[in-house]
Lab assay of single mutants.
Amino acid sequence: VPQRAWTVEQLRSEQLPKKDIIKFLQEHGSDSFLAEHKLLGNIKNVAKTANKDHLVTAYNHLFETKRFK
């Protein structure tokens, strides 16, 4: 089981690129989880459509539901 890579403050910070969060989610989330949160596909394309709040919610949801690969 992966550990949380970032704190809530870090997740919301401008310093953390959306692409980093997407990469983490794609590496650790199950396909059904990723599909549900519309996070499947090319990281660049996902970054265009997903806002930061959406990614933070998905990140927290992944750990709450433990839907890891």
Rank of each mutant, 00 (worst) to 15 (best):
N60M: 14
K66F: 08
A50W: 06
T7G: 06
A5Q: 15
W6C: 15
K52T: 06
T65E: 12
Y59F: 03
R12Q: 14
Q3C: 15
E9S: 03
K69E: 05
S32T: 09
N60C: 14
K23Y: 06
A50Y: 05
E14I: 07
P2C: 14
E64V: 08
K69A: 10
K52N: 05
Q10D: 15
Q3Y: 07
V46K: 06
H61F: 07
K23I: 06
K23V: 07
N45Q: 13
S30A: 10
V56K: 03
W6H: 14
T49R: 12
K66D: 06
S32L: 09
K19E: 15
K48R: 13
S32W: 08
K38M: 14
T57S: 10
W6P: 15
G41N: 05
F24C: 06
F24I: 02
F68E: 04
D31V: 12
K52P: 03
N42K: 11
Q3S: 08
K38Y: 12
N45G: 12
K44W: 14
A35S: 12
K19P: 08
L40F: 08
A50E: 06
G29Y: 01
H61G: 08
K38A: 13
V8C: 15
N45E: 14
G41F: 03
A47S: 14
D53K: 05
T7S: 08
K48T: 13
V8R: 03
I43C: 10
H54T: 11
F24N: 01
T49P: 03
R4H: 08
R12I: 12
L62C: 02
E9M: 02
R4D: 15
N45A: 14
E14V: 07
I21M: 03
V1K: 05
W6I: 12
D31H: 13
H54G: 12
E9A: 04
K19N: 13
K38P: 02
Q10F: 06
K23M: 09
L25H: 00
E36L: 10
L62F: 04
Q10I: 04
Q26T: 05
N60R: 05
Q15P: 03
P17F: 07
A35R: 09
E64L: 08
N42V: 11
H37G: 02
L40E: 09
H54K: 10
W6S: 12
A47T: 14
T57R: 09
V1E: 10
D31Y: 14
W6T: 13
L25T: 00
L11E: 01
H37Y: 13
L40T: 09
R4Y: 11
L62I: 05
K69Y: 07
T57M: 13
E64T: 07
T49M: 13
N60L: 15
I22Y: 02
L11A: 02
P17C: 11
N45L: 14
N60F: 13
Q26W: 08
S32Y: 09
A50L: 12
L16M: 06
G29R: 00
N42C: 15
E36K: 07
T65K: 12
H61N: 14
Q26E: 02
N60S: 10
F33T: 00
S13L: 02
V1W: 14
A58K: 02
G41K: 05
L16A: 06
N60G: 10
A5G: 12
S32D: 11
V46N: 05
R4W: 12
